[in-house]
Write a protein that binds this DNA or RNA. Sequence first.
DNA 1: CCGGAAATAT
DNA 2: TATATTTCCG
Length: 361
Amino acid sequence: MNKGKMSISVESNSNTGCAAVTVLLVDSDSTCLTIISKMLRTIGYQVITAKRATDAFRIIHDREHEIDLILAEAWLPDMDKYELLETISNMSAIPIILMSADYDRNAVIGSLFKGAMLYMVKPITMYDLKNLWQFAFIQQRENVSILDETSGIEEATSMESATGVDKRRNLRNRKRKRSDEIRDEKEEDIDGSVIQKKPKLVWTDELHNRFLQAIKLLGIKAHPKKILELMNVPGLKKVNVASHLQKYRLSVKRQQETVQKTMDTGSTEEHVASNHVLSKFDPQTMAVAQQQDIIDGQTWENLNGYMPVPYTDCNQPGDNVTNNGGLEFFQQMGNSERVLMEETGLFNNGDYTSTLFDDFW
DNA sequence: CCGGAAATAT
DNA sequence: TATATTTCCG
């Protein structure tokens, strides 16, 4: 039960007083992800990033002991914020902080009620982030009245853990069992750890583009198995591909039918096979597909069995996040933050120079 | 076990 | 409602 993390290192960043805290940052917007993670690192946090709740869960599951704090966007494409809070609370005791672009009082209260430590309104500034590390040290007070008598028995044995972090984890685990009894969507394995039901896969643009690439390369004999191994996406299952393929083929068929209909009024029929491979489910996302195609699609013809470009949409912990300029985020900001970030050079290139920051702090 | 269609679930 | 998952069948 004793995890490797005996303590959070209290070696602080000399400028900020920030303890060496590792933050799991979850945001589907790659711009926000980039900016905020950069700010966090600047202040002295360690940062692990995830773009979706799904990814966050995997990271928490695999590296729970490394993470001290979770900072998550309230809106994620694959999960409602309350479900997110509940799921994370059930699998770990890591403090969760939510953030959102708009202020909604109900959302704030609801999130706090569901276990969020704090609800921050975007845009997030470095002032906002500076003291967040303290949440990693909060030690939950004993509150016997909440607990019923049945759960008290086994807990007495497990209170020897040294650190406040471990102690808090135990407390949270106790609550977890209660909620599991109420809703049985989770199941416990022998270890007592919780396996949550696998979240729904979201076919993001990059994922779909890889899918299209695979289809294009495999041609008419594109079958789920081949597509899967060609796509080279960690965690992607064959059933996912098969399902997607089914939908894809349907859409292609529909499109061809409509093309046929429009052709009936006019001329001959010999263009059918030409473009069906690249067709999208709907025209709106077509542009995205082509754009992506241009970006990383030029040398994909000769490859040895899988996509040469690693899948980055669902980024692994520690991966560099793609930065597309930060413009949207930049525009959201107030003037003072804007000036600050301009001065600090956060937008200029990946590596800021710390001299200006020294002044700031 | 695989792929595909249809039913089912979110 | 759309779309992802699960079931079922050849």
